[in-house]
Design a protein around this nucleic acid. Structure first.
Lengths: 236, 236
DNA sequence: GAGTGGTCTAGACCACCCT
DNA sequence: GGGTGGTCTAGACCACTCC
């Protein structure tokens, strides 16, 4: 037997073909028998591949009909230790991140509240867009206490990653202390970045992350494209 | 073949035994071969059951070692701490509930999936509106396995409360095993009930509640008026 | 009735863990 | 080396969909 399972490479092939547009949402895949013939394997091996693709929400099967490409939004689990890109990788997609802005300015009321600062204090603000497979999924704004992390902007610029940047300034681990969620309508600017229609539904999450000593280290607001994402809250 | 898949009833048996404490976190289950012998089925059928249990995070397998109960069984779900509150200051709000409909009908695909039923099985469906201070906050639909709870509709009619009704039919405690959230636009019917504009943003949550033996007892969908409420997800 | 996915059995071999 | 889970094959029958 080869080192990589056959069913994994079959799933990978099919994923690539779907990503390349050979199959579109709603399309029917070839039958299990046909796929087995094409890949030169047993039908059960194809089924194992399709089973995994169904688990990750890529396809769904209808007995008697066939296997169909899902138009279903990607799921994004949130919990105590949410790391956006790690989660997307787990879902088998390719995460990308575009930096829109990194700046340092005075905190506004809400930011000061959330980070336990006064409004005289400065904060670093990091804004960007997260995408998967070329489709923008989320617009985010992360706010950090500037006094505590003077070198953070440089680290953000270099890594693009909040987790990596915080690690580089001494915050090895952090946890989400709370998340608030609500539904909103996309503003023109948000719609532009997320490539959705103005007025389309978006899911806004507001969260505070704290370090091991429970000091707030990040205040984050994320706007998800409502039709491309759903959040999963599950026990860990 | 019986109406219910063998592997499902095997998974159900094992779930019950785990919930009853026959196996504790970290414990090793009998080997696949032993389980196959015990249930009088092929090893592959046992594997199918274990596979589903692994998916839902109940167990994990280690090649060469065995299958083990996961450290944190679903006794302590984060989703349990999901609660909704009014965005604006909620001083002395009076929660109200209006029953829209209580009916019994065949399960659809998603309901059957979520409740581990077949589509031949019947479900009780309870729909209503939650309000506070006269303002509708949420529209909900709760779906229950009818065979297990023949007397539930009466209890729902009398109490209006899912918790109270389930208690009256023997489910003293239940926990939320998962919640999915996404943003949508209100349909005309939803807008009417929530007294918001057609196309206003709404927050949809889809959840599954399980009893002490981890059997699904309720599949619930709730639509929140996006501009009147937000959800808080907090650990611990 | 033909086609399609879902379940179950049976057997083989492999990769990995333990002792 | 012996035991355990992981993969793959092969074949059978069933439930469901679609014509």
């Amino acid at each position: 037997m080869s080192r990589t399972a056959l069913w994994k490479s079959i799933a990978s092939s099919l994923r690539t073909e779907i990503a390349e547009g050979h199959y579109r949402p709603g399309d029917k895949l070839p039958t299990e028998a046909e796929l087995a013939l094409r890949f030169g394997v047993n039908r059960h091996t194809v089924r194992r591949a399709l089973s995994e693709m169904a688990e990750t929400g890529l396809v769904h099967s209808r007995r008697g009909s066939g296997v169909f490409i899902n138009a279903k939004p990607t799921e994004y689990p949130i919990g105590r230790r949410v790391r956006f890109h790690q989660n997307l990788q787990a879902a088998g997609q390719t995460p990308e991140r575009k930096i829109l802005r990194i700046e340092t300015r005075l905190a506004n009321t809400r930011e000061a509240d959330a980070l336990a600062l006064s409004q005289q204090d400065e904060v670093h603000v990091y804004e960007g867009v997260s995408s998967a497979d070329g489709a923008p999924l989320a617009l985010f704004r992360s706010v950090f206490p500037a006094a505590r992390f003077p070198l953070l902007p440089k680290a953000l610029q270099e890594t693009g990653s909040v987790t990596a940047a915080l690690a580089s300034v001494g915050v090895a681990d952090y946890t989400r202390s709370s998340t608030r969620l609500t539904a909103k309508l996309a503003t023109p600017t948000q719609a532009l970045h997320l490539r959705i229609a103005e007025g389309a539904p978006i899911l806004r999450t507001v969260s505070v992350n704290v370090d091991a000593t429970l000091q707030p280290v990040e205040y984050g607001i994320t706007w998800f494209a409502g039709d491309r994402i759903s959040l999963t809250v599950s026990p860990e």
